[in-house]
Design a protein around this nucleic acid. Sequence first.
DNA 1: AACAATACTTGATTTAGATCAATCGAATTT
DNA 2: AAATTCGATTGATCTAAATCAAGTATTGTT
Lengths: 190, 190
Amino acid sequence: MYDILFKHLEEKVSLTSGEKELVASFFTPKKLKRRQFLVVEGHVCKYLSFVTKGLLKAYNTDEKGNEHINQFTPEGWWTSDMNSFFRGEISFYSINAMEDSEVLVITSEDFENLTLQVPVMDRYFRLLFQNSLITKERRLISSHTHTAEEKYKHMVEKNPDLIRRVPQNLLASYLGLSPETLSRLKKNVM
Amino acid sequence: MYDILFKHLEEKVSLTSGEKELVASFFTPKKLKRRQFLVVEGHVCKYLSFVTKGLLKAYNTDEKGNEHINQFTPEGWWTSDMNSFFRGEISFYSINAMEDSEVLVITSEDFENLTLQVPVMDRYFRLLFQNSLITKERRLISSHTHTAEEKYKHMVEKNPDLIRRVPQNLLASYLGLSPETLSRLKKNVM
DNA sequence: AACAATACTTGATTTAGATCAATCGAATTT
DNA sequence: AAATTCGATTGATCTAAATCAAGTATTGTT
């Protein structure tokens, strides 16, 4: 279960076996049944979680009751409401398992201790956040400059895997489109 | 000139005077006249830059020739095309001085050496990127869930300073709106 | 001061995508 | 297996914001 975490860490940094042990000691495994919540909107997000199996979604609900997907998190990726986790504020997102899933979680105090005791983890997360930032920036620009169809095509190219795993209405939400629009536009694309 | 950089670093991490000297040695000061380019779209972005004076904009130009502002960078903030800087790819954005400005620049090789020689800089940038990520995420959600008017109001609340410094048409572009729409909606807000 | 270039406003028109509504199919649940 | 929930499609209509167009105000430049 920790193997996939280490494999991931070692793509960005090297760890001694002593460090690995220490890292592992900070995380707790957690199983989630489909539809189970890891975080509920309005509560504080206690964990930063590394998904080792399954698929989670992070989303928020607007005044009209519409869900807006912020992120899909398959195995090998991290999820959290970062604002809540790092700043102790109330969570804006809910995080929910779309499939039976397994995660490794760490609390914010432990995260702080982890980075102090294993400084290379600062480097790891620097690199991780750096890459996420590049991706988020692209999504933001795309949301301003691309048409619905271009956004979908881009998604098909970059995340063909997700397209297969995620119901179309949630994909639409992730792209900031209505389900009807996505349904219609697919005909033009193919 | 380096004072503002150190002040900024020390809001997130502590540095010995030896480390400060070392850090400083990696950066080069650069002056930019109004309208001068720091990066031109299509070239590799050689520098990560810390603005010590003035105001820069990062933007890209679409097929129709419309500019889309990605970021405004006043003094005390960092700017770069991160994808280009960290991955050596061609820059998607141009970065241009909106006022006479001064920046401290570092190349990507030097950035790598800096983090290796002063590991606490990994921590600094981890924290920096972490915060940017939270902000970018919010902007992205906002672009999906908020109306033009809400986006503008939010901006007025969060960045009243920028509103005063930046021409309205560029502000519109930053928010993903046409200049006409922003002009019209201001009347309703006040 | 005169000129050009930029920025802002206002009106008329268009349009991409949302919303409303109904039907059908596929998965879950009991 | 029947029942219920959930997802996808299609059509009709609506709307927020874009686009097109013209005029005015504000800067910046010689």
